[in-house]
Amino acid sequence: MSDLRALAAAYALDAVDASERAALDALHAQDAEFRREVEAFREVGALMAYAAPTVAAPSALRDRILGEARSVRSITSAPTARATPAARSRWVTVAPWLAAAACAAFAVFAYNGMQQARDAMVALSGELTQVRTELQEKDRTITAFMGPEVHVVSLAEGSNKPTARVFWNHTRNVFIVTAFNIPRAPDGKTYQLWAISKALKAPVSMGTFNTDEEGRATIIVPVGTDVNAIDVVELCAMTLEPAGGSPGPTETPRLVGSWRHTD
């Protein structure tokens, strides 16, 4: 074990050999002190990025990144400062009542002062606009789950119950990944999905995702051109890979499933 600890720096730089990776992954998962040391080395290692030659990034890159972000927005975005998910749900339910109450309040405020009432209405109007936007986004998501051009795969470990499902909406050209009871990927790691076809020698990456602290995820991932180019995809598999994903699986799949139509 002490020999493995000496490899903390190499591990932080992903400079360990495949034969020692599993043991180091296990040590990293079990040993908080080793994790802290690796994290500290990763922080130092990150500075190496500044050793690269300074170049100007293309001016359009920023817009491209923001545009891409809009297409991969997580469905289960975390609570905003305005309301927790539960509170937001209640808010959606009671929103019409609150709007009505706001109208009543308006009359009262009119007696005491029109300006205060106007401020309250503006605030409520803003909240309602946000709720409408969120509902529209959820409607789009629900639509993505359904339709004649949707395939689904249930991913499971062996004969166990599935712990993830992936919906492939061909019309919208997106995957919707729903995961549950999958531990959050360790530091520096990510889960990666693979499209597997008999016609191909190697699996094709479908994208990466991670789960939250509760082991859940609901993510929309655009379908890449590599995957769209496959005529028939029989299987889907999930592996744990270094952050950012790998060009090919580096381990035996943890979860596997067969694609089927949603009908």
Partner: peptide, 24 residues
């Protein structure tokens, strides 16, 4: 770079690494 920022955006909720920075 585009895909890396997309990863950060998509997986921000899962980012819980004590002592780690967003830059790292």
């Amino acid at each position: 770079v585009t895909d890396a920022f997309a990863d950060v955006w998509r997986e921000a909720r899962s980012f819980q690494r004590p002592g780690a920075t967003l830059f790292a």
